[in-house]
Design a protein around this nucleic acid. Structure first.
Lengths: 210, 210, 210, 210
DNA sequence: AATGAATGAGGCTTCATTCAT
DNA sequence: CATGAATGAAGCCTCATTCAT
């Protein structure tokens, strides 16, 4: 199970169909999207869903996994960018853009996510940590801001726009801009509270907005 | 409110118990908290819930109403504060504090909220609008920020901390501070997108984080 | 209880109001009319309903009682009419007319009716029995028809029209006429089955359409 | 019917079991028979009822449909009988016999019945209409009686016997005989009210006793 | 391996009836 | 006495999950 065994060709196809259908349904109907609807949307039987994902929570975990993974890929590329400040802003922009297309941030609330998820999440923490460290060294962000802060603030621009009924697709850019301005060294006021997890290792406990 | 005659003593007590129990259950279990659990927690029968709130949505609306009302009371007082910048920050602090004690922001998504709710919500918009206008005139916030922006950003500090498993109770202050720094005129970068509802009246369509 | 004790003036008034309101509600909503609605329509509290009628079934029994009693009053007068055939037809006409104004025939299905009801019912059987006997002696109805037959056929005209969505108020007269033609001696065919309760006494067991 | 692919063997069996159990329960308990009891009686889970009939009303409609359909089959055969008068009497006899075994006439009152029902009902109207027309031409029934009249009177014999506690199974034959005598030309008196729906088409509005 | 039928726990709501005010 | 608040059983229905086909 944990070791990826080779899936039969059609099984792999169904798996992909299911993940896509599930993401769509969740995005449209929220966490209460029914397994039956997901199956119908994927064009497979209900039983097939449970063959691939023994539990609804497992299905959710798989979706979350995919999305974090996609972000990690981008993040890894940005680690080698020339301008560290721009790289961090770019990362946040990509993350918000991903979430704007389909907001699945609520998925993380569903049950304990699989250990798989913890792994990619840890990877992401390291990436963001590094992006922030480099940006800080270049004076692009204020000294008192940590990688954890960025992880947490990552969802904010989209969350903010979720209160606008028919928000224009790019509205989140406005709020990402405001928040990023708050992260800059110019005109920064001292922060009234220390960041959440000071030690590097413990940061794994933060949940990640997918 | 609408011609509600004074509730009998015990009925009023039960109503209070129910609202408190419901708020607790919702805060702990999310929107899917069951009416049965709420009744049990309030120490009343299931039927009593429906005497006071014919529908689960009605119950939710009552909670939302109470919370917005409480905010409005604070906001009205702050309208007459000496320092407009401090007043706005204070308002956001109170709002975040309320939400930190019990995050019920998801309640607004539940079904069409009663017209009552729309009323207090509109009142709140006016208050925030005014607070922001005055703060802007005093140079406490940047010129390109509107009342709608503030309404939308109001929830962000708490939303951010919701990703931290056992967040310290005051962690939100850190993020409110960062975000408020982003609202200041010093070091502000031009915003890439116009604010959501330019005209004052249409702001009613925004949903309010309770 | 069984012996009629003098009701206080206002209590008697409430009782009357309740019976009227209940009859109206039942006629409009069927057997499932709720006690709460009846109370509201009568302009009294729900508790008052149960003070007068300990059980919903008791309330129903009281209504049934009143209606049968009213019929009996008419029937007794008709016992002394000059033309026995016309008298029987008149009785059936009055019965159908009563039911047309408010069809409560379904009430008899509700739970075991009180012994009170049995009493007036028995009285009614005797009356109809006599009306039929006299009509038969005068050659107005066929020889093989009994009082029980008439009791049973009494509801038929209204029942028949109940299938017509917005039946004209007097449509029942058409079917009473057809059925009554079937009761006449002219052109009568032999009946393939004996009447239900041959012995006079046992007829009490028939339920009476109120 | 509407594109229903052939049900799986066990599903078809359950569907049959359910329809039978439901008919039994409704006959015994009336319209308020509970879905849970029906499921128990059919020996299936509650959920299975809703798989086959998404709504209680749908279940009722299916029962009604079956019964009307059965009558139609008989009626169609009788259209070609040699003696039109006997054919009409036979039809009424079969109808009453069906209803005697299980009186479900009250089912038609339940919610808007499916369009399917309207279809078979219309078919039945045509059949009865034709049976009556032919009987009238042969002088078997009086000239002033219409197809609608017959539809409406169809339930009467059973309704009449419903007032007899432990009625002998064939008692209805007695009242069908009496009523049919009223339909004959011999000794007919003029009817005091026109029949309900004079035009052929509008007869669809009558509800049909299933 | 895929399907979809079956299951039953659990959700919301109604209502007759009891009981404190 | 009258009132209406409280109760809890029962009803209809949904849905994640299991299992026969």
């Amino acid at each position: 199970m944990t070791s990826t065994r080779p899936l039969r060709a059609d099984a792999a196809r169904n798996r992909r169909l299911l993940l896509a259908a599930a993401a769509d349904e969740f995005a449209e109907r929220g966490l209460d999207a029914s397994v039956a609807d997901i199956a119908r949307r994927a064009g497979v039987g209900k039983g097939t869903v449970f063959r691939h994902f023994p539990t609804k929570d497992d299905l959710i975990a798989a979706i979350v996994l995919d999305r974090i993974d996609a972000l990690n890929t981008v993040g890894e590329r940005l680690l080698e960018a020339a301008d560290p400040g721009a790289a961090l802003l770019e990362f946040l922009t990509v993350a918000a853009h991903q979430r704007q297309q389909r907001d699945l941030s609520f998925l993380q609330e569903a049950g304990e996510l699989a250990p798989e998820v913890t792994r990619v999440r840890t990877r992401m923490f390291h990436i963001v940590q590094t992006l922030v460290d480099r940006a800080r060294e270049h004076g692009a962000v204020r000294a008192d801001v940590t990688g954890e802060d960025i992880i947490l603030l990552m969802c904010a621009p989209n969350h903010v726009t979720s209160y606008v009924p028919d928000a224009p697709p790019d509205l989140w850019r406005r709020y990402l801009s405001i928040i990023f301005d708050g992260l800059r060294p110019e005109g920064a006021h001292p922060l009234p509270h220390p960041p959440p997890a000071a030690s590097a290792g413990s940061s794994t406990r933060l949940s990640t907005p997918p």
